[in-house]
Amino acid sequence: MSKGFMKSGLVGEMSAEFAGTFILILFGCGVVAQVVTAELGDHDSISWAWGLGVTLGIYVAGRLSGAHLNPAVTLALAVFKDFSWRKVGPYVIAQIAGAFVAALLVRWNYTEMLAKFDPGHTFKSQFVFSTLPGNGSFPISEWGALRDQIIGTGILLFVIFAVTDLLNNPPGANMAPFIIGLIVVAIGMAWGTDAGYAINPARDLGPRLASYITGYNTAWRDQYNNFYFWVPIVGPLIGGVLGAAFYRMLIGRYLAKAGEQEPGRVPAAGDR
């Protein structure tokens, strides 16, 4: 394989990660902007739109890059699934860039609504783009939010590893993207209060940067004036690796042993 082909292959994968994350954020930040500024919808519609955004983003990017769309996923796959470490940086850059550009588009499209709802561009509408502890309303510290992000992303990666493990019983007929979207919906409905379930450093950092350069001067801080931007970066990276590790420890290693002990077993539908 020539170096030129390998280079163009990585460029294609980065393009897919950019596009998939772009689609994810269009639906995710878009629905929050609609609910916050126009009161069209509620928490459940936010959870569903984020989940569907994940599903659609995976369908967009899946064939070329595997559709990580999340640095926590990329890191966990590098640690546990032999994903190439040399691709980790390029994938993360593409994911953040896709999230950033999509958030700029949401910011532009909702310019008038945001200006009417929050003329000063304050925390009142900041969480359209990036997360805040306690969703900006409840008494959660950055340390409580960090705990929440570790747990939430751990759940995400634990179940993603389960539904994509060919030795398990993964969903067939290309249904995995839909199931992964449902995982995000469930996390939003059950783990959304403490920190807004970023569970994805690119999802938070890209839109946070977009909001900062378009008038949100407090984008890097929380409502208590603490530097907060690091929480939805560090928490998911830790949680993702821990969730994947727990899957390997509790489930994955036993599936591998079962496969060795039953070499003639009939594969499940998802194994093919």
Results as ranks from 00 to 15, higher is better:
Ala78Cys: 15
Ala38Pro: 01
Arg86Leu: 13
Val32Ser: 06
Ile58Val: 15
Ala94Leu: 08
Ile96Ala: 14
Ser47Glu: 05
Glu39Gly: 04
Ser45Arg: 05
Gly66Trp: 00
Phe100Glu: 04
Gly89Ser: 14
Ser65Tyr: 06
Pro90Met: 02
Leu56Ser: 05
Trp48Asp: 03
Tyr59Phe: 09
Ile93Thr: 04
Ala94Ile: 06
Ile96Val: 11
Leu64His: 05
Val92Leu: 05
Ser45Asp: 03
Ala97Thr: 09
Phe80Gln: 05
Val73His: 11
Ala49Met: 09
Thr74Ile: 13
Ile93Asp: 05
Gly89Asp: 06
Ser65Thr: 07
Trp48Glu: 07
Tyr91Pro: 06
His68Leu: 09
Asp44Gly: 14
Gly98Gln: 03
Val54Arg: 12
Phe100Ser: 08
Ala78Gln: 09
Val73Tyr: 07
Ala78Pro: 11
Val54Pro: 05
Phe83Ile: 03
Trp48Ala: 12
Ile58Tyr: 11
Trp85Tyr: 12
Phe83Ser: 00
Thr55Glu: 02
Tyr91Cys: 00
Gly51Pro: 03
Val92Arg: 02
Tyr59Gln: 11
Ser45Phe: 03
Gly89His: 09
Leu64Arg: 10
Gly89Val: 15
Ala76Asn: 08
Val35Cys: 00
Asp44His: 14
Ile96Met: 08
Ser45Gln: 08
Ala99Met: 00
Gly98Ile: 12
Gly66His: 04
Val79Thr: 05
Val92Ile: 14
Arg86Thr: 12
Phe80Leu: 03
Arg63Asp: 12
Val54His: 00
Trp85Met: 02
Asp42Met: 11
Ala61Gly: 06
Phe80Tyr: 15
Gly41Ala: 12
Val54Tyr: 13
Tyr59Lys: 00
Gly41Ile: 06
Glu39Arg: 15
Gly98Leu: 11
Leu64Glu: 12
Lys81Ile: 04
Tyr91Lys: 10
Arg86Gln: 11
Val92Glu: 09
Asp82Cys: 10
Ala76His: 01
Ala67Asn: 07
Leu40Asn: 12
His43Phe: 15
Arg63Glu: 12
Arg63Pro: 02
Lys81Ser: 10
Ser84Pro: 13
His68Thr: 12
Val60Glu: 14
Thr74Pro: 00
His68Gly: 05
Trp50Cys: 04
Gln95Pro: 11
Val54Glu: 05
Ala67Arg: 02
Gly89Glu: 09
Ala38Lys: 15
Pro90Ala: 09
Gly51Lys: 05
Tyr59His: 07
Val54Thr: 02
Ala76Met: 05
His68Pro: 14
Ala33Gln: 11
Thr37Ile: 04
Leu69Ser: 07
